[in-house]
Amino acid sequence: MDFYDGNMELKEIQTLEGHTDRVWSLAWNPATGTSDIPPVLASCSGDKTVRIWEQTPSNRLWHCKAVLEETHTRTVRSCAWSPSGKLLATGSFDATTAIWENIGGDFECVATLEGHENEVKSVSWNASGSLLATCSRDKTVWIWEVMPGNEFECVSVLQGHTQDVKMVKWHPTMDVLFSCSYDNTVKVWAEDGTGDWHCVQTLGESNNGHSSTVWALSFNAEGDRMVTCSDDLTIKIWETDVGRMELGDDHAPWNHLCTLSGYHDRTIFSVHWSREGIIASGAADDGLRFFVESKDGLVDGPLYKLLLKREKAHNMDINSVQWGPGETRQLASTSDDGTIKIWELASLT
């Protein structure tokens, strides 16, 4: 697929209102958004609640389907659907992770994962849904194994970051875990074959990494490239040899490919890579940016160029951007202004 300058436009589809405090994060349910199942997403907020939103097929308008409250006692910072879309994990500043299941149309909290000393900042399921990772201000990353009967057993506590861990994310196809931190680094964690997890690589300032807090990371569909964003106002693209990884070499190193700077002028909180290769970013400058690989400069290796930008996409900081699972290029963004916005990136005809 080719993207040409100026042939795309960003349409604002709808603003979802309901949260009474900043909206931190959101997650599209991966089992929805098909021809017969309307898209569903979950959002979480400083108002201590999680909201479930669904698009009505007849008029394509979004509505709030459920409010998950009275479980977390502080800010709900992060949420993630299991790959099957049946379970929702939510991480909170109350130091717990809650697991919710949709039982007959009602969401019930079926498990509470305790262990972190303080704020849980991010949760992530692996590709098969058998493992869940959580991270915290306590500088640790925990890996939980999903057992029958909604039991979760902690199989590893990963120590290595020297400051709070902002986000955890599993590789899209392999059981390799990535974490990014207030200590300015990204760490890669892999299992050694005996059940022990180790840090196999640290991407820091000395290997072209970030010079301030790394807030988020995301992978391309093939899983051989990763994008990271930071308080240093840059976005960085990293590359690995996915062939080596698939042959079972979890230690295939990640190398810096390029740095995108000068596009945001305040902290970049979120990046997300779409299946067809468009990187979206959202920042504390209230703006959205979209990047695609440029085919022009192949002599010097692949580069990424700005496809589109939207200033003042929200009235306040943008905390999260996430592409939807459906066929259309839908994106949702969350903000300190208390809203979620649904966008569509459309081709100009």
């Binding site: 502080r74 800010t75 201000r137």
Partner: peptide
């Protein structure tokens, strides 16, 4: 400076 300008830390502190 880093702590004062990390809004997640500030939000957590204010809880």
């Amino acid at each position: 400076n880093k702590q004062l300008n990390d809004k997640e830390r500030v939000a957590a502190a204010l809880e």
